[in-house]
Nucleic acid binder design. Structure first.
Length: 240
DNA sequence: GGCAGCCTGGTT
DNA sequence: AACCAGGCTGCC
C-alpha cells in the first residue's frame, strides 16, 4: 500500500533516506545508486524506457489531473518501503546517526572516535564516514571530497584524529554537502532531479574521479585506490 | 570489523 | 566476454 488514496501531508529526509507521510500510510524511500523520482504534469509524456517500478497518479485541486510521479531505478539498488504510520518510519530511522548537513564538530567527534568500551577495532576515517549509523548522509563521493578539504587521509585511524582535525572535517562535510545540494547534486551519469535537470557538482569535484590527475592545491598527482571497500582518491601531499 | 552479493549499463 | 562502480544488507 504505497500511499494509495492518501493525501500527502509531509515529506521528510534524514541522511539519504526519504519519507513521505500520507493520511493513510507512510513510505520510506532510498534512491540507492540510480533511483530517481520523475514528475510529469498532466498530459506530459512519461519518459519511455524501462525500469519504472512505481507510478503514482496524482490528483489536483477539484479532482483535476495532477500529473504523475514515477519512481524508476535501472540498477535496483534503491527501494521503497511501506509503513503503518510515521512512527514506524521514525523507528527505522533511529539506527541512523545525526544528519550530515547539520552535524556539529562535537557530535561528529563523539561518534567517529571509538569509545574504548564498545569498539575494540579502530577503523579508518573513511569507513567511519560512510557508516550511516555514525553520521547519516555521506556517500562515497562526498566522503572523499570532505576528507580532501579537511586535509585528512582516508586511511587515518579515527582514534588518532585531533580535535582540530575533527573540527575541520565536520566543517568540510557540511560545506561539501551544502554546495552539492546547491549545485543540484553530482550527475556522473544518470542522476536527474524530479524535473529532469542534471546536477553540476561533478564539475567541482576536487578529488573524486580525478585519480592520477594533478592536485588542484599542490599540483602533485592524486592517488587512487580502495579504502573501506570503495574507490577512493586523495592527495598524498595535502592530506595527512 | 571485512566482505560477498544484489543489479545494470558502460567500458575494456 | 569479462570487469567495474556503488549503498546497503546480511553473513562470517
Amino acid at each position: 500500500m504505497l500511499l494509495e488514496g492518501s493525501e500527502i501531508q509531509q515529506v521528510l529526509r534524514h541522511g539519504k533516506q526519504l519519507g513521505v507521510i500520507g493520511d493513510c500510510g507512510t513510505i520510506g524511500v532510498h534512491l540507492g545508486m540510480t533511483g530517481q523520482f520523475l514528475y510529469r504534469g498532466p498530459g506530459e509524456r512519461l519518459a519511455k524506457g524501462d525500469h519504472v517500478h512505481v507510478t503514482w497518479t496524482l490528483v489536483g485541486p477539484r479532482g483535476k489531473s495532477g500529473g504523475r510521479l514515477v519512481f524508476r531505478d535501472p540498477r535496483r539498488f534503491g527501494g521503497i518501503w511501506a509503513y503503518r504510520d510515521q512512527n514506524a518510519l521514525r523507528c527505522r530511522w533511529e539506527a541512523l546517526g545525526p544528519d550530515a548537513l547539520t552535524i556539529g564538530a562535537g557530535e561528529l567527534g563523539e561518534r567517529l572516535r571509538p569509545s574504548r568500551a564498545t569498539r575494540q577495532v579502530v577503523r579508518n576515517v573513511k569507513a567511519a564516514l560512510l557508516d550511516q549509523s555514525t553520521v547519516a548522509g555521506v556517500g562515497n563521493i562526498y566522503a572523499d571530497e570532505a576528507l580532501f578539504r579537511s586535509g585528512i587521509r582516508p586511511t587515518r585511524p579515527v582514534d588518532e584524529l585531533s580535535d582540530t582535525e575533527i573540527d575541520r572535517l565536520s566543517w568540510a562535510v557540511r560545506e561539501v554537502l551544502t554546495e552539492a545540494v546547491e549545485s543540484g547534486g553530482s550527475t556522473l551519469r544518470d542522476y536527474v532531479d524530479a524535473d529532469g535537470s542534471a546536477g553540476s557538482f561533478q564539475l567541482r569535484h576536487r578529488v573524486y574521479g580525478r585519480g592520477g590527475q594533478m592536485c588542484i592545491t599542490c599540483g602533485e598527482p592524486l592517488q587512487s585506490g580502495t579504502v573501506a571497500q570503495r574507490m577512493t582518491v586523495w592527495c598524498p601531499c595535502c592530506q595527512h
